[in-house]
Amino acid sequence: MEEPEVRKRSEEKQRDGSSWILTAAHCLHHSLDPEDPVFHNFYRLTPSDFKIIVGKHWRYRSDGTEQHLVAKHIFLHPLYDPNTFENDVAVVELLKGPVLNDFVMPICLPDRPPEEGAMVIVSGWGKQFLQRFPETLMEIEIPIVDHHTCQKAYAPTKRNVTKDMICAGDKEGGKDACAGDSGGPMVTLDKERGHWYLVGIVSWGDNCGRKDRYGIYSYVYSNMNWIQRVTSMSN
């Protein structure tokens, strides 16, 4: 991954942001017992089990731009399966939304599927190929891969790429999300409308950046009905 450029928009006034965060469901529960792989409610994390920090660029040192937020409620998709990663999406309701500024900005939710082959940007603090965690937030730009191609690539692994998943990456590998990126965003710029949209959420894969193994993301558009019911939002 590459370090993203930090762009400032000094003319933008501060305002309160959304009280909702989208992430991967598998980030919000404890590991399952291998002897009993059934997902029980007691595996779920509670709002007091984790921290939410926005406006952060450096991993280990203060930016001076961070905002610490408090989770109020956690909603895991009712059809989430931790064994197959189907419906791997969750919504966190915040006690209070962040202040929007040059370092904290919202993302639009999709009202239509992305174009096949569209370029997307994935960002996170996950491991790099030397298995080190980066000092700063990193990003990659990769193309969306059609569902049939992705299913065919994963056929030898016996793992199913379902309709609520979307794939992205280069056939030759080299660019991918990795351990520590889970729950992070995959976004695309709609040049026609001039807005960034959330396409997917980092979910799973087969190693990192492996040839013929694309990254698998929770498909946000496929889950919009549930997201809207939980948040009472509309497109």
Rank of each mutant, 00 (worst) to 15 (best):
P4G: 04
E5L: 07
E5I: 03
V6W: 12
R9E: 14
E11R: 15
R15M: 11
R15Q: 14
D16M: 06
G17K: 02
G17M: 02
G17S: 01
W20T: 09
A25H: 01
A25F: 03
H30S: 11
L32R: 06
P34F: 01
E35G: 14
H40N: 13
F42A: 07
R44W: 00
R44M: 11
R44A: 07
I52W: 11
I53R: 15
V54I: 12
G55D: 04
G55S: 07
L69K: 09
A71I: 02
H73E: 15
H77E: 05
H77G: 13
P82Q: 11
N83F: 05
T84H: 08
E86H: 13
N87F: 09
D88E: 12
A90M: 12
K96T: 10
P98A: 12
N101F: 11
D102Y: 02
D102V: 03
F103G: 01
V104Y: 01
M105T: 14
P106H: 04
I107W: 01
D111V: 05
D111T: 08
R112Y: 09
A118M: 03
M119L: 12
V122Q: 03
S123D: 00
G124K: 04
G124R: 04
G126V: 01
G126S: 01
Q128N: 11
F133K: 03
F133V: 14
E135I: 06
M138F: 02
M138K: 15
I140D: 03
I140K: 07
V145I: 15
H147N: 14
T149M: 04
T149V: 04
T157C: 11
D164K: 14
D164Q: 14
M165G: 12
I166C: 10
G169T: 04
E172C: 08
E172H: 13
A177R: 07
D181F: 02
G184C: 05
V187H: 07
V187K: 12
D190R: 05
D190G: 11
K191T: 13
K191W: 08
G194P: 08
H195N: 14
W196K: 11
Y197G: 05
L198F: 01
S203R: 06
S203V: 06
W204G: 12
D206R: 13
C208K: 00
G215Q: 07
I216G: 15
Y217D: 10
S218V: 00
Y219M: 09
V220G: 15
V220Y: 15
S222V: 00
S222L: 00
N223E: 15
M224K: 05
M224C: 06
W226F: 00
V230Y: 12
